[in-house]
Design a binder for these strands. Structure first.
Length: 539
RNA sequence: GCCCUCGUAGUCCAAUGGACAAGACGGCCGCCUCCUAAGCGGCAAAUCCAGGUUCGACUCCUGGCGGGGGCACCA
């Protein structure tokens, strides 16, 4: 009986015994009450069981308390029935000490999960057009996709991170033409690419020697390399860089169109080839091949999806901008048309990052005007840690406001420093004690006569961490990790204020506090690691 | 017009059916002979509107209002 999960299971079992129905019991929750005086944990079991039993919820809670008392014995210090029928549980210090032991035993895997079912997941993110530098919106996609990948990997999934390179359409030639124009000292066409970066892609003398196809390819490769380097500096790496062009050159697009036709999923009309996505829940059918014979972007997407499927992924996650959320239905439809389960395709639409100027006025981000903040600028100005935390602290479905003028000063206010500071403080504290004393303390974790409320609060906060990660992973919500780590740092700071560690009497109390500090440090480091933020020992 | 999404303190935002809505910034008042003041304590301040479901709603449903996005044989 050393973990919250086991405690939860016991509560479920007790509830199932009362009602004789395990289905209802599965919905029983074990929660942390909003205030410490309401107990260490509480359960809503009685509120759920009361209608089944035809009894008042508070009476059911009382019966449940007796049942739990006999199952838990001395683990349960006392119970209270509260409000409409909550049962509040007060746990013994023995249980808490044992739970801390469990945290220490887990080490840097605290909160991790064993290999999950349907474990292989492909996460595609960023996938920016390789025709210009990454901007702030891509930064959000990069931070999110990377943090989600780290989180899912920690929770037992086998993750492949993938970047889809749009190197096939007309924009490639436009990039080449823009480079050529600059090399010749001519103005760039109005629909070309205008940023200063264009001149840096291919040296002018070389640009003048190449034909437009070669030049376009070289310019694109150079641009892609800049993107890769920017992401690397931001702490983001990909396992697979997948070329759209390769899907055409290998015949994969052609093959998938043939296959869809053979399955009766496509038809010709008005000179074009259409996919029957509407039979799989889309609003209307979509064009695969235009009447001029060119295949559409959608056709490439399907060939790419089929390639992913053939590589054996159980699930394909696409992290796209919110301007693509209308694509969800057609991508799921395409999966169904290929004979797959549409539920294995998951689209996550990230809301935009809005740039706001000094007066709070919204600034339009336009590549044409050069009015945008690049990922490189963001990293240069606020640093990787502050940038990543800022972008990851918000839910993916809320728009983020970024004040361009305050980007630098805002960094000092970033809560990430508060978290890092707590981590550094613990490192300093443990260094002061010496590794021998810390080692000894870990072997001496035992119940102490009376835990200080701040010790208790910090420990319970740590114990909630695995469930935080489980929720965050299930909901694809790495911002919950950011929320949790800040909360843990705050609980630690309160503990640090109230409970002197070095020299605490009796020795058992000092040992427990050392163990608690170490467990906190590890939890902070794990969380920061999942966010891609460093955990410094000194600040 | 239709579809999706979001509306929470002055500002940025958390809370996906639980108890008195969390935190940060900004504001006001206080705190370094004390394991890091990048810190600590205190005060003021919020669920867009109207119905509904529920023992219980920021959360779910209906209808409004407001912001953003999408409704191509563009990529």
């Amino acid at each position: 009986m050393g973990s919250v999960e086991q405690l939860h299971e016991t509560v479920r079992d007790a509830a199932a015994t009362l009602v004789g129905d395990s289905a209802v019991a599965r919905a029983v929750k074990l929660e942390r009450p909003p205030r410490a005086e309401l107990g260490d944990y509480s359960t809503n079991a009685a509120l759920l069981l009361a209608p089944k039993l035809g009894l008042p919820p508070r009476d059911v809670a009382q019966t449940l308390a007796i049942e739990l008392g006999s199952r838990l014995g001395s683990v349960l210090a006392r119970t209270e029935v509260a409000g409409p029928g909550f049962l509040n549980l007060f746990l013994s210090d023995q249980w808490l000490a044992a739970a801390l032991g469990g945290v220490l035993e887990a080490g840097d895997r605290f909160g991790a999960a064993e290999k999950a079912a349907a474990a292989r997941i492909d996460v595609e993110f960023v996938s920016a057009n390789p025709t210009g530098p990454l901007h702030i919106g891509h930064a959000r996609g990069a931070a999110y996709g990377d943090a989600l990948s780290r989180l899912l990997a920690f929770r037992g999934f086998e993750i492949t991170r993938e970047f889809y390179i749009n190197d096939y359409g007309s924009q490639v030639r436009k990039l080449g033409e823009s480079v050529a124009a600059i090399a010749r000292g001519e103005p760039v066409a109005s629909d070309g690419y205008h940023g200063d970066y264009v001149a840096t892609l291919v040296p002018a003398e070389r640009a003048l020697q190449l034909d437009i196809d070669e030049l376009s390819r070289e310019a694109l490769a150079a641009c892609l390399e800049q993107i890769r380097a920017s992401l690397e500096r931001f702490g983001v790496r990909f396992d697979v860089w997948f070329s759209e062009r390769s899907l055409h050159e290998s015949g994969a697009v052609e093959r998938v169109l043939e296959r869809l036709a053979a399955n009766g999923e496509s038809y010709r009309s008005e000179g074009a080839l259409w996919l029957r996505t509407s039979t799989h829940g889309d609003d209307k059918d979509r064009v695969l091949e235009r009447s001029d014979g060119d295949t559409t972007y959608f056709a490439s997407d399907i060939a790419y999806l089929e390639d992913k499927r053939s590589r054996g992924f159980d699930r394909m996650i696409y992290v796209w901008g919110s301007d693509h959320h209308g694509y969800e239905a057609r991508m799921k439809s395409a999966c169904a048309a290929l004979g797959g389960d549409p539920e294995t395709v998951e689209l996550i639409a990230l809301q935009f990052v809005h740039l706001v100027g000094g007066g709070g006025a919204r600034v339009a981000m336009s590549k044409r005007e050069g009015e945008y903040v690049t990922l490189d600028e963001l990293v240069e100005q606020v640093g990787v840690d502050a940038a990543r935390y800022f972008l990851l602290a918000r839910s993916h479905d809320t728009t983020v406001e970024l004040d361009s003028d305050l980007a630098v000063s805002r960094s000092a206010d970033n809560p990430v420093y508060y978290v890092q500071y707590a981590h550094a403080r613990i490192a300093s504290l443990l260094a002061k004690l010496g590794s021998d004393r810390v080692e000894e303390a870990l072997g001496e974790v035992a119940p102490v006569p009376s835990l200080h409320p701040s010790e208790r609060a910090l420990l319970k906060r740590l114990l909630a961490f695995p469930a935080d990660l489980e929720d965050a992973a299930e909901r694809r919500a790495p911002h919950r990790v950011a929320t949790a780590v800040l909360d843990i740092a705050q609980q630690f700071t309160a503990f640090y204020r109230d409970c002197h560690v070095v020299g605490a009497k009796p020795r058992a109390s000092e040992s427990l506090r050392i163990a608690l500090a170490l467990a906190t440090q590890r939890t902070l480091a794990i969380s920061l690691g999942l966010l891609g933020v460093s955990a410094p020992d000194r600040m």
